[in-house]
Design a protein around this nucleic acid. Structure first.
Lengths: 350, 350
DNA sequence: TGATTTTATTGGAACGTTCCAATTATGAAA
DNA sequence: TTTCATAATTGGAACGTTCCAATAAAATCA
C-alpha cells in the first residue's frame, strides 16, 4: 500500500531534511533561526517545507527546551459580557506575543476549575490567568508555587493568597458613585445585591460605607440587602426594599445586572427611575447604555484589565523569580439617567 | 548543588518509578489504565505521584500515540455576546469529553485567523471549530483536508467549502419574522443592515424576500439598505430610510445590534417604535430583552449551536473518514414590543 | 601557497512518554 | 510436586524536536 503524501502520518523535520538534501540539524536551525545558515540553504529548506506541507510540532520541541508559549485563561462566568471583554483583552496581548491561550469556563464550579487547571498544566500551559470561582480557597492554588507555574488572579481578589493580582478599584469606584448620589442630595441610600461572602461585594460595599461615613450619613442596616448577582436577584432585593416603611431615595447596586433587575422592580411598583428613585450600578456593561433610563454606573475597562493581566503574566513567566505584582485598574463614574442628575440639572437651570 | 524537590525540573514518570520501586512501564500502565496492574501496586504508584506532585506530560505522550485531546475554537467576534454564548456551549461539551480548548478571537481579520489556526495546529490541536472572519475564502481552508485535521465551520456558512457546518436557520427565521409583520398588516417593509457580501445577510434577506413574495407584497429595491452590522450602521441606515418620501411602516433588521441602532434613529426622528413604526431584529441577544421597547426578534440558541458544533467536531475527530455533516439549528420568533403586536392586540380587544 | 580564523553543516544524545516483546511471578490443573 | 496458563512486570526502541560537540567548507591573513 503506497503512502499518499501528507495523508495521515504528519511530515517531520527528517523528511524535510531528506527532501532538501540537508541534515535534520540544519532544518532545525532554520526553524528556530538560532544558528548561522547560508541564505540559499535556508530558502531551499523553507520552500521544501512549504511544498511538503510541513507543520512544526511544538509539543516535540517543548519536550527538550520547555518554553511552551501556551497560557491558560480560566473564567468563572463567560456569559457575563464583562468577562468576555476581559478575555478579549487577554487574548489580544497573548496573540501579539506569539502565545496561544487555552480557555475554560468554570461556571462558578470549583471542581471544574480544579479540573481545567490540571488539564491545562498537563498540556503544558506555562502560566494561568484565573478569575476564581466563587468559593475558591487560596490553598487550592498552592500547587502553583510548588510547581513553579506562573499564576495570576484577576477580577476577584483572593484574600490570603500572595500572588500577582489584577483587579479594578472596586472600593474607590463604589465610593465615587455613592458620593455622586450624596451630592445629589440623597440621605437614605441602600446597598443592594451580591452575597456578603463575595470579595468584590465586600470591596464595593466598603466603598459605599466609606463615602457614607465621610459625609456624615448614617447607614441603616436594613438598607443593606444581599441577593444573587443576577437580574432576578436584583428584582427581588429591590422589591423587598420597596416594601419597607421607610424607603430609601437612592440605591447603589452590586453590579449592572442587579441594577437592571432593581430598575424593573421599581418600575413594577410604579416608580419612575431617575425621578422617584435613583438607581446606580457597577461595571458599565453594554446593557447599561441601552436600558431605559440609561444606567448611571462605574466603568472599569475590562479589556484594559485583560491586557494588563496578560502582560503581567508574561512578565512573570519570563522572570519566574520576580515578586508578585498587583495592578489596580481605574474605575470612573459614568453619569447617565438613572440617578436623576440630568433631570436635576434641568430643574436647576429652568 | 542539591536539587530541591519539585522546584524547577518537573518530576517525571521515571522519578515516580524509582520512588515507588517499579519500572517506568508500570507507571505508564497505571497512568493510561491500559494493561493489567495489581491493585496494590496501582495504589502505591498513585500515592507516590501525589506525594511528589507529579503532573502528566501530555505533550510527551502525544509524541508517541497522537491523540491530543485539544481542539481550537476560532471566533470572529468575541465581543458579540452571541459568540460568547456559542463559546460557552462549545467549551461545555469539550470539557465533558475531557478535551481542552484553545480559544482565539480574530476580530474579523483573516490574517489573524490564519495565524491562530497555524499556531493551534503546531500546538497539536486535533480539530478546529471556526467561525470564519468576514472575507474568508474557502481555499484558505484547504490545508485541513490535506493535513487530515478535522475542521468545522460554524455560524457563517462558507459557500463552496464542503465541510461540516453548524449554522442557524437564517432563511426560515427571517421569513418567519417577516411573515409576522405581514400578518400585522404591514405593506411596505424594509430590510436593513449588514453588507451584501455577508453570507448571513444573503440568507436572512433571502428569507425576507421569500416571505414577501409568498404574500404577494412587492419589494421596493429602495428599501433594501446595507450597513455595517453595528449600532452606528443601523442608526445611519435607518436615518436614510426615514428621509425617504415613501417611508416603510416596518423594518426587518440584519441583527439585533443594527435593530437597536435603527430604534435609536427612529426615536430621534420623533417616532414611537412599536406604534408609529415596527422594527424587528435577529439573534435574540440579551440586549434585545432590555432595550425599550423590547425588541421583537428571532432566537437561535447560540449555546445549543455551540454544543452541537463541539459534538460534531468530536465525532469527526474520532472517525476521520466520516462524511461532512451539517446541523441547521432552529430559529424561532420572539414577539416583544417593537413590532407593535401587543398594542395591536390591545386595540383589537378594546 | 599554507596556516588560521570564521562560517556552515552534521551526527547523536537527550526530552517524557507509550508500546511491544520478553521476562518473571502467581495460581490452577495435573 | 511439576506443568501450564495467566497475570504482572519490565527493558528498550520509538515519537519529533533541540542542543552540543565535532567536523567540513569557505574566507582571511601572512
Amino acid at each position: 500500500m503506497p503512502q499518499p503524501q501528507g495523508s495521515k502520518g504528519k511530515v517531520t523535520i527528517i523528511e524535510i531534511a531528506d527532501a532538501a538534501g540537508v541534515s535534520k540539524s540544519t532544518v532545525s536551525l532554520v526553524l528556530t533561526g538560532r544558528g548561522a545558515v547560508k541564505p540559499e540553504t535556508r530558502q531551499h529548506v523553507l520552500q521544501t517545507m512549504d511544498r511538503l506541507g510541513y507543520v512544526y510540532n511544538r509539543g516535540a520541541a517543548n519536550l527538550r527546551n520547555a518554553q511552551s508559549r501556551i497560557v491558560g485563561l480560566v473564567l468563572n462566568d463567560l456569559s457575563n459580557p464583562f468577562f468576555a471583554e476581559f478575555a478579549i483583552g487577554v487574548e489580544k496581548v497573548l496573540q501579539m506575543a506569539g502565545y496561544v491561550a487555552f480557555m475554560a469556563n468554570t461556571a462558578e464550579s470549583v471542581v471544574r476549575q480544579e479540573q481545567v487547571m490540571r488539564m491545562m498544566r498537563e498540556h503544558g500551559a506555562g502560566g494561568i490567568i484565573l478569575c476564581p470561582a466563587l468559593d475558591t480557597r487560596p490553598e487550592h492554588l498552592d500547587w502553583a508555587k510548588a510547581a513553579g507555574t506562573a499564576l495570576l488572579v484577576a477580577i476577584r481578589r483572593l484574600p490570603g493568597a500572595d500572588m500577582s493580582i489584577v483587579v479594578p478599584e472596586n472600593l474607590l469606584g463604589a465610593s465615587r458613585v455613592t458620593r455622586h448620589l450624596i451630592n445629589l442630595g440623597h440621605e437614605r441610600i441602600a446597598f443592594l445585591g451580591g452575597m456578603h461572602s463575595m470579595v468584590v461585594r465586600q470591596e464595593r460595599h466598603g466603598g459605599f460605607l466609606s463615602a457614607m461615613e465621610a459625609s456624615g450619613r448614617s447607614v441603616d442596616p436594613a438598607l443593606n440587602l444581599e441577593s444573587m448577582p443576577t437580574r432576578d436577584g436584583g428584582f427581588s432585593a429591590m422589591s423587598a426594599v420597596l416594601s419597607l416603611a421607610d424607603r430609601p431615595t437612592a440605591v447603589v447596586c452590586y453590579n449592572d445586572v442587579t441594577a437592571i433587575g432593581a430598575m424593573l422592580a421599581a418600575a413594577r411598583h410604579g416608580l419612575v427611575v431617575g425621578r422617584d428613585i435613583a438607581i446606580v450600578g457597577f461595571d458599565d456593561t453594554s446593557e447599561a447604555r441601552h436600558v431605559s433610563p440609561a444606567l448611571t454606573t462605574v466603568a472599569v475597562d475590562p479589556v484594559g484589565l485583560g491586557e494588563r493581566a496578560a502582560a503581567l503574566l508574561l512578565k512573570q513567566i519570563n522572570d519566574p523569580a520576580a515578586e508578585p505584582e498587583s495592578f489596580i485598574g481605574p474605575a470612573h463614574l459614568v453619569i447617565r439617567e438613572s440617578c436623576g442628575a440630568y433631570q436635576r440639572a434641568l430643574a436647576a437651570a429652568g
